[in-house]
Amino acid sequence: MSRSTRATQVLSKAGIAFETVTYDYDPDAERIGLQAAEAIGEEPRRVLKTLMAMVDGKPVCVVVPSDREVSMKKLAAAFGGKSASMMKPADAERATGYHVGGISPFGQKKQVPTAIEVTALEETHVYINGGQRGLQVRLDPRAARDILKAIAAPLIAD
């Protein structure tokens, strides 16, 4: 597995401090983010999943803890929209240039508006997909927010 992806190249070029962590990706896992957390021995709240969604018909990227679900109502509100829905996997792959299970918010083909769960910013470090199945990057969540120009908002369902 290559530890150099578009995602890691974007982080390096921006001077963001990060470490790469690899694990055995299980394509049959019921919840990919939770499988990643278990495989790397980290709390699920620190392993963030990257989801692609639509808000009022426009693509957005959402970064939330792997053990939580996104509230569509809160997601729409974060972007000032009326409605939100998850993007179909094939559309997410086309939009990002990454494969499902390896979608990173960093280095997407076309950068779209991004939101990160506000509680993730309380962590000293988080893990976010590094642009390849089985590859995570460990970094400061505030650095992730800054490079993504992400909105920090409450996004998880109660």
Rank of each mutant, 00 (worst) to 15 (best):
V70F: 01
L51P: 14
A39T: 03
L51F: 13
D56A: 09
P44T: 02
E42A: 15
V60W: 06
G57D: 13
L75N: 05
R46C: 02
K49N: 13
P59V: 12
V47E: 05
E69G: 00
P59E: 10
R45K: 12
V63R: 08
A77F: 01
A39E: 14
M52D: 02
R45V: 11
P44D: 01
V64N: 01
R45M: 07
V60M: 11
V62D: 04
G41Y: 06
D56V: 11
V70Q: 01
M52T: 05
V55G: 12
S66C: 05
V55M: 12
V64L: 03
V62Y: 08
D56Q: 10
C61T: 15
T50D: 06
K73T: 15
V55P: 12
M54D: 14
M72D: 08
A39G: 03
L75R: 13
L75A: 07
E69D: 14
A76L: 03
V64G: 01
L48G: 02
E69H: 10
G41P: 01
K73H: 13
E43R: 15
L48R: 06
R68W: 00
V64C: 04
A76S: 06
V47D: 05
V60S: 13
R46Q: 14
R46D: 00
E42Y: 01
K58I: 01
V55E: 13
A39I: 07
T50A: 07
V60I: 14
I40Y: 03
R46P: 02
E43C: 02
G57R: 12
D56F: 09
A76M: 03
L75K: 10
L48K: 06
G41W: 09
K74Q: 13
A76Q: 03
I40Q: 11
I40N: 09
T50C: 10
M72V: 04
A77E: 11
V62Q: 09
L51Q: 14
M52P: 02
E69L: 12
S66Q: 04
A77N: 04
D56W: 09
V63S: 07
T50R: 11
A53R: 10
T50Y: 15
G57Y: 06
A76Y: 05
P59Y: 05
A53K: 08
V47K: 07
